[in-house]
Simulated assay, not measured.
Amino acid sequence: MKKKLKLWSLGIFIILLSIIVYWFYFSKPTSFPTNEQLVAEMNRVFPKATASTIQDTIPIDERHVLAPFISKGDDYGLSYWVWKNHKWKVVSINTKGKPMLWKLNKNDPSSFYFVWNIDPRDQLSSIHYYLIRDRGFRIAEGIEHYNPRVQMEKRVSVQEKTYGLMQLPDDWVKFMNVYNKVESAKQSPERDMFFGWIPYDQKDKGIFPENSVNGSSFSNGEVGLEYLMILNKGDIEIPR
């Protein structure tokens, strides 16, 4: 009798534990906080943000939301929110909105997004994003290997809205999947692929967006953000 009671108690305990674990880690997100709550939480976690106005809340999926904002000092920044442990958490804040790459899943390029919030004082017309793999030559075990340059480009207008996000294009994802597979099979991966961007003004001239870079940032280490290189036209090869 005592043995059956112990087994019954253990079964109840396992069921309750499973319910708690599911509730804490896997339950569906509740409604997203209000703009006022977002501002209060951002300034509590990172006082340097001095957030004042939430421009928008942009769901990427049900557990990731991008919230561009304007600070009390009229800086244009970005905040990153994730549903985790049964609550919405701000996992990163940038007081400047320079383009970044947000990797929702670092092992899946299809989950990568370019995000930005450009200060209007920079008067940009568009951003050109690039995926580049430099050409290279090496000799391994007496065999010559040549890697041609790969250059992919995507233009995004920033005239209508200062902020936005863009999922990596399908052809970029296909290339990265092949590239990652090849490099992971090597004993010494080359890591010769990178992302970059060129900002263009109203006259289609490349400029440096001084009001959109060099801000302060906060991160709790739970967000996959990659900085992008600011390129110039000399870094880009024009097909002949």
Rank of each mutant, 00 (worst) to 15 (best):
Ala140Gln: 09
Trp8Met: 12
Thr95Glu: 00
Gly196Val: 02
Asn232Pro: 06
Asn220Ser: 09
Leu66Gly: 02
Tyr113Thr: 08
Lys96Arg: 09
Gly97Met: 00
Phe137Cys: 05
Asp61Ser: 11
Ile207Thr: 09
Lys48Ala: 08
Tyr146Gly: 07
Asn147Gly: 14
Asn214Lys: 13
Lys72His: 13
His145Met: 07
Leu165Gly: 10
Val173Phe: 09
Val156Asn: 10
Pro189Asp: 02
Glu226Ala: 14
Leu228Pro: 01
Glu160Lys: 08
Lys84Ala: 09
Leu38Pro: 01
Ser31Val: 12
Leu10Trp: 10
Leu78Thr: 03
Gly11Ser: 15
Ser217Asn: 05
Arg133Trp: 14
Glu41Trp: 00
Lys203Gly: 15
Pro239Asn: 08
Val65Asn: 01
Val182Asn: 07
Thr34Ser: 12
Ala40His: 03
Asp171Lys: 09
Met152Pro: 06
Val115His: 01
Leu5Ile: 08
Pro148Glu: 06
Gly221Tyr: 01
Arg191Pro: 12
Gly234Ser: 13
Pro239Glu: 08
Trp23Tyr: 13
Pro120Gly: 05
Tyr227Trp: 14
Val115Thr: 13
Glu222Tyr: 11
Tyr146Arg: 06
Ala40Lys: 12
Glu144His: 05
Pro99Val: 00
Tyr227Lys: 11
Ile143Glu: 09
Val115Lys: 02
Ile20Asn: 05
Asn43Ala: 07
Asp61Phe: 02
Phe208Val: 07
Val90Pro: 00
Tyr130Cys: 11
Gly224Thr: 04
Pro189Ile: 06
Ser126Met: 04
Glu183Asn: 09
Lys186Gly: 15
Tyr113Ile: 14
Ile198Tyr: 03
Ile132Gln: 08
Pro148Trp: 05
Ser188Phe: 09
Trp116Asn: 03
Ser157Ala: 12
Asp108Lys: 10
Asn211Thr: 05
Leu165Cys: 09
Ser125Thr: 08
Pro169Gln: 00
Glu222Ala: 13
Gln167Glu: 11
Leu38Asp: 00
Glu237Met: 13
Leu38Met: 09
Glu183Arg: 05
Ile54Trp: 02
Val82Ile: 04
Asp119Gly: 12
Ile15Pro: 01
Leu16Gly: 11
Asn177Met: 12
Lys154Asn: 13
Pro120Ser: 10
Tyr113Phe: 07
Glu153Gln: 15
Asn43Lys: 03
Asp74Trp: 08
Glu153Trp: 04
Asn43Arg: 01
Thr53Tyr: 15
